[in-house]
């Protein structure tokens, strides 16, 4: 497992689901979250690496880091 300095408040396990599952799971959690919440999105869909940053940009939230794990990615997001 790769290391990260971020300690998520919420973890979403969207591994195994395909587009737009991971992004929609993230949007659902961001909707409920207070500003400043750190969310870890675990996704095995490579498409997430494109559509998640694009949406965060559009909606004004931050992508902190993308960590490559064995067979998925952890995308760390902070809400504004």
């Amino acid at each position: 497992m790769s290391e990260t300095e971020y300690d998520p408040d919420v973890t979403i396990d969207a591994r195994g689901s395909t587009c737009p599952g991971p992004l929609m799971d993230l949007i659902g959690k961001v909707k409920e979250a207070d500003p400043g919440t750190v969310i870890e999105l675990q996704t095995s869909d490579s498409g997430s690496k494109g559509d998640v940053p694009e949406w965060l940009d559009e909606a004004g939230h931050d992508l902190l880091e993308v960590v490559e794990q064995d067979d998925y990615w952890s995308m760390y997001v902070e809400t504004n």
Partner: peptide, 8 residues
């Protein structure tokens, strides 16, 4: 539509 295109 919620994502970046008109359909999943």
């Amino acid at each position: 539509y919620p994502i970046q295109r008109a359909h999943a």
